[in-house]
Nucleic acid binder design. Structure first.
Lengths: 156, 156
DNA sequence: GCAGATCGTTTACTAGGTTAACAATTATCG
DNA sequence: CGATAATTGTTAACCTAGTAAACGATCTGC
């Protein structure tokens, strides 16, 4: 027998020498999971999920948005958006409004309750982000935002 | 007829004034989706998925890793790891090796084929990352990695 | 030697998408 | 004009990637 402790079957390698640790994709995913988990904790059991909050933001900030528009802006399929809009409509945060000029389309119009819910949620989201990014100073936060946008521009 | 194109029901707001665009979480998710899609395109139809590649990396780089160890390092549940290890074993990239000192445990040992597959995959991943991050110089890339790790440290 | 923890596993479930098809409607162009 | 193509919202079936709870087997600490 060696002098190795029984418990430690795996020799713990320095994180710095792990190939994964120098990959942006791996770190991006880990950071994304952390943020998402905290987001859900902050928004609570019956809070808006990330995608529903994003959709509500577009609806509130973009007058006369249609579902196809919204799906394109969110980067998802029209079919996938239906459940999201259903939820927002079910909560009374928006209405599907018939558009006489194009009867295929239903414009998405936020209700007063929707605008209120959006503003309340945004406050929570800001608090959540401030907490998750507390170890970053203002410059680092701007830089992070800038670098993520650069990746988005490359791929969208 | 007005001068407005009929198609544009939604007035396109400047992205800079959208509340979402200044949220790290939103940009992180969008960037994550872009990277993941390109990753899958690069690795091909029957290539290793991100999580399987991550698992294989740990198995190759960490001798005598157990499944519980691996799950902890990947930040997922033991139950979720089973399918990943099944796939790697099915591909012949690792073996579940009985450990006499603890018969609950099966150590994960990479095969020669597993090491080869890991190295081939890593080359593809590096090419993928270089392409996705082509608009970032070396300093920006390091900075991005550094900032993502800071978020990880806050939340892990 | 017994109570409690840990290991790998199965099962059932959830979130968040995708693709393919559909009827209704609108746009294009010979 | 009229035929053909494109677009819209929707449903249905499916996929990926995870979680939570329970299980028998095994190990650890007192």
């Amino acid at each position: 027998m060696t002098g190795m402790p029984r418990k430690a079957l795996a020799t713990e390698a320095e994180p710095s020498e792990m190939a994964l640790e120098s990959l942006v994709g791996y770190n991006l995913k880990r950071a994304y999971v952390i943020l998402q988990n905290d987001y859900r904790a902050v928004m609570g059991e019956h809070g808006l999920s990330p995608r529903v909050f994003s959709a509500l933001t577009f609806v509130v900030e973009t007058p006369n948005l249609t579902q196809s528009d919204l799906a394109r802006r969110l980067g998802i399929e029209r079919s996938g958006l239906v459940a999201i809009v259903d939820e927002l409509e079910g909560r009374g945060y928006l209405r599907r409004v018939a558009v006489p000029q194009d009867r295929r389309v239903q414009a998405l119009s936020p209700t007063d309750a929707g605008v209120q819910a959006y503003e309340a949620a945004l406050t929570l989201v800001h608090a959540h982000e401030d907490r998750m990014l507390q170890t970053l100073d203002a410059g680092e936060r701007d830089q992070l935002l800038h670098l993520l946008k650069k990746i988005r521009e490359t791929g969208e």
